[in-house]
């Protein structure tokens, strides 16, 4: 297993500011060196990924190494954003982990059908969230090879 962690960005899309804060706190607990960027709806998410609009200053920077995606967001929800991400030749290579309160069968099945890399139900307690964030980052940055790591 590799011992180095590249300093790539994790991108989280979630409309709930409390949830964003909790995840940010969880990342701090885990002492992850990667930076985390947040967007609050599907429109911001796509602008960020396409490095356009409010995010045109990102042009030229590498894509995020991982996307944590809520399903229920205003303006454009996670399901639609997921579809658009997996339809784009470059963006589809970025692992997308759905992180949502929904436990509905239909959401789970549809997310995997649309190409989500994983589906994780948001835990209720902060301790469990820290545990999940620790295991998710360990899996995606230590165990798994991601595209573009060699760059």
């Amino acid at each position: 297993m590799r011992s180095n962690m590249e300093l790539i960005t994790i991108l989280m899309a979630d409309d709930d500011p409390d949830d964003r804060l909790l995840v940010e706190d969880a990342f701090e607990e885990v002492q992850l060196k990667n930076s985390i960027d947040f967007v609050k709806d599907g429109v911001e998410l796509m602008d960020y990924l396409f490095q356009r609009g409010a995010y045109s200053s990102l042009a030229g920077s590498p894509p995020p190494g991982l996307i944590l995606l809520d399903l229920n967001m205003p303006k454009k929800d996670g399901r639609q954003a997921l579809r658009e991400i997996k339809e784009d030749a470059k963006l589809r290579l970025i692992p997308v982990v759905i992180l949502t309160t929904s436990q509905a069968d239909e959401d789970i099945l549809r997310s995997y059908d649309l190409g989500a890399n994983s589906f994780i139900v948001k835990p209720v307690t902060f301790d469990k969230l820290v545990d999940i964030i620790r295991k998710v980052t360990n899996y995606w940055f230590q165990i798994v090879r991601r595209p573009g790591e060699g760059d």
Binding site: Q103, D105, I108, L109, F119, I120, V121, I132, V136, Y139
Partner: peptide
């Protein structure tokens, strides 16, 4: 950690 579709 992950919720799998297999149960359904």
């Amino acid at each position: 950690i992950v919720t799998l579709p297999s149960s359904y």
